[in-house]
Design a protein around this nucleic acid. Structure first.
Lengths: 206, 206, 206, 206
DNA sequence: TATGAATGAGTCTTCATTCAT
DNA sequence: CATGAATGAAGACTCATTCAT
């Protein structure tokens, strides 16, 4: 809608970043295939040639954006080291903190996240694989934490850790899609509450 | 894959169905944009014109497939009438049956389902809206059942029914994507078990 | 709009004629290129194959129609033999009769005539040449009559017979296009009057 | 006809004009439907994409050419203001001048004119209407002049001004088609003479 | 004779990428 | 660095004609 940036004679990095932002804007609106290089450069207020001065191809920009999104998750690590888990309350604490961090990140970068959750799906093998690897990594992390709880004996021994991790992943994804991607001010507390409560106790009466 | 042979005049409906199947095959492989009409007709062993004799456009075939997929879910209704819920065990029964039915349907039509979960995402507004409406309908159904449980007093009164339904939706979607779409013989029991256990009791120790 | 004819088991000639009429109808509406074989057979209520049983091609039907139109003019010959011309009044008589005949024919077959004047123009060489030959023939006839008048001494000796014949041709064509092709009940007398008066005396005061 | 050579970047307007000329050339040869975009770009020695950089479609180029042709006639106005008409000689003067101007324009732009008289006929409604409006305008102008003569009393009072204007239109059109469109050096004087003589005095002896 | 399913050459149009200026 | 004119491979769709039934 509005030109993303100013004009002329930016430093290489700045111009690149400007194009990247414009691309994000454009892709968010139209998806990968619905967005043309023309849209991106118009949004950026930059000439066609300039675009190719900074990126190899349309694929390249999209890829860069996806990578940047993925990298965001690597930084979501609420505590630097393995926390000690003695009681269920410890576990709850950890979960609460994790979800807060994750949901916060997702919301903060919701435009980028949309790329992951809605635009990069169904694209060609390269992106597909990247996404799969990403979800696998995330799954591993969740599973790690869960196993920690199991080992600490604060949750059920017979938990199907693998599938449950998948389910948690799905829960977060859907909540994110529904309540974070488009919302300006989401109710984080309600979301985290719902997540933690459900994960810990299911729907069963206490 | 295989040309059927020379020229053979089928009945209108048969040819249409054949093309539809070929299209499904093709879209499954390459996604919407990665699939060309050429791929579909090659797969069907049919001439270009024949394709357009039965469908208005590439978009039209895809749309038809998506609609067919969506319609599949309307038929997933394990019991004809509202079941009575007295105890948690009743609820468990219902959930178990529901999940069995749903997962079974998903697996049975996994090629079609893939369209919903992986190919129709990120496409243009028409499909997007269709998907959203679909998920909304599904969400409503889940929420309905859950509310039934709440009203019957067999689960927590303070349950955030709306969000929890979303989470359930996400759980099923992710499990389906991971364990059903590509697997030839999935372990339904393990899946249903994981789902029901988690939904009912969370990860907490009994 | 309305199916042109009945159905089934007509004699060869009848079916052919029926298709021809439907084609005329269709071409009148959409011109040569704007009309598809589909339009013609729909109008005729006949199957595709039937069409090709009676005509070699779309080109063929059109050609047949054009030929038929052209042949109509050959029959427009108000009197069997060369009339004697002694006075200007004789000439006027002849012109009046000729125009009446010609305009009458044009109006009677206005659908067909439209083909000549509006649809067959600008088509490929075959039609072009046919039209040219036709107009040349007509021109010759007009010129013949005019020369008769000159030789009889009832009109100007220095008349540019060739160009004047062209002009007469143009006059008739335009009047036909404007007042005959679409009109249900044209005012023939006014038309003939205008023609004869103009041709004989120009616009000059008597 | 001749590729200009390697790649050469022209100014936007120049390239557009070049393509326009090539299109005119091509359409003149093959008519609207007989001419393909391939013919135009080959003639222009330009790539496919370049064509669409300057015109929206084949229809668009043709339309542009037709419009340009029509606009040519608006400029044919031999004298800036209403001339005084006292005698038949004045009228003759005016007619002579008008015809000279019109025929001159037609011949000068005969390629373009061919579009009007031969190619744009029988096309779809848009062009048809445009042509009709054009002929109507021309008719009005002729009728205006003629009425001037009538009012000045230099020609017959009972003249059927409307139809006569149509006839004049037809005369000019046919003469133009026959003697101007293809001729390199037409005999303007003979044409104007024939026209003026006929229009003023008809074929009758003086 | 009649039918209508099937064919495929033919065209237009798009759009990512290149390159002269 | 920047520009934007030029490129052309790729792909969707049409429709006259053929042929199995």
């Amino acid at each position: 809608m509005a030109k993303t940036g100013g004009r002329r004679n930016l430093k290489r990095t700045e111009r690149r970043e400007q194009i990247l932002q414009s691309a994000l804007q454009a892709f968010s609106r139209g998806g990968y295939h619905g967005t043309h290089v023309a849209d991106i450069i118009e949004q950026a207020g930059v000439a066609r040639g300039t675009f190719y001065l900074h990126f190899e191809s349309k694929h390249d920009v999209f890829d860069t954006l996806v990578d940047r999104t993925l990298r965001l998750f690597l930084d979501v690590r609420p505590m630097g080291e393995e926390p000690a888990v003695r009681t269920l309350t410890d576990a709850e604490e950890i979960l609460r903190a994790s979800y807060h961090a994750v949901l916060g990140t997702i919301h903060k970068h919701r435009k980028l996240m949309q790329l992951l959750f809605e635009e990069a799906v169904g694209l060609e093998k390269g992106f597909r694989r990247k996404l799969e690897r990403h979800f696998a990594a995330w799954h591993e992390r969740i599973q790690g934490t869960m196993q920690l709880f199991v080992d600490a004996g604060v949750v059920r021994r017979d938990l199907d850790v693998e599938m449950t991790s998948d389910m948690v992943l799905g829960m977060v994804e859907r909540l994110a899609r529904r309540y974070l991607l488009k919302a300006a001010r989401p109710d984080f507390d309600r979301l985290v509450d719902a997540l933690v409560t459900f994960e810990l106790g299911g729907i069963r009466k206490r």
